[in-house]
Amino acid sequence: MNKTPNNKAWWLVLPVFLLVAFSALIPLMTVVNYSVQDIFDQNTAYFVGIEWYQEILQDERLRESLFRQFGFSFAVLAIEIPLGIFVALTMPKQGWQASVSLILLALPLLIPWNVVGTIWQVFARGDIGLFGWGLNSLGVDYNYTANSVDAWLTVLLMDVWHWTSLVALLCYSGLRAIPEAYYQAAQIDRASSWSIFRYIQMPKLKGVLVIAVLLRFMDSFMIYTEPFVLTGGGPGSSTTFLSQTLAQMAIGQFDLGPAAAFSLIYFLIVLLLSWLFFTTITHMDKDKS
């Protein structure tokens, strides 16, 4: 669509700009200020230059939590994207079944994150939870509070439970936009269901899938509440992801300087990733038109 050049449109954007600037720019500047100082209280602070950055960048614990974070985010994508496409393909197109499955699918998305953690905390326990008890009685040695592999898998399963719906709903809306005539044409050509998927459904899904990957990657990259409630980051630090490490530093130990330096590095990584995704999306839009 052709847009008319008009710089007066800035007036329409101004409220959003001011509001977001207030909540985003001031805190961001503060973080930068903190990151170069050693702060004891309101009035005593020493300029330390890049000391905190050196400390953070050479900190083993943070590196581990960064690698753990990437591993987790990629695992989340590898499971949720195919599963979401599969669920979307199996969903009924109309009638009451469609409404019911939409509502059921959206259900996990609307549960407060800490409650999601609580649900799985209870559900996966060996003594009072159906899932943990079921696994144990099948002879599987499963205990997410003691075994770090179990804990990791539980957090992953919880995230799949929580967020696959988002991918499925996105893909479902992509599939709904395919005109029925395409399918009829494919039927006349006796196309196999694989080639229908490959040549009719997949191209239409590409746009929504990029959005799905973007949202899922970014949200899993900042995951905090669910593992915090479920495992508290343990056992050991096997399920401590980036946000939790940061929150521990900032609120737990009140190490303002290092926490700020860490925040900035974290923010820069996120900024780079979202820029990559955003550029991909806009270039795809351009190719379309």
Binding site: M29, T30, V32, N33, Y34, V36, Q37, Q42, F47
Partner: peptide
């Protein structure tokens, strides 16, 4: 603005 803990280098940077 005290809590924002401005320093000269960061002020120059944002400027």
């Amino acid at each position: 603005l005290n809590w924002m803990a401005w320093t000269q280098p960061t002020a120059l940077f944002f400027g």
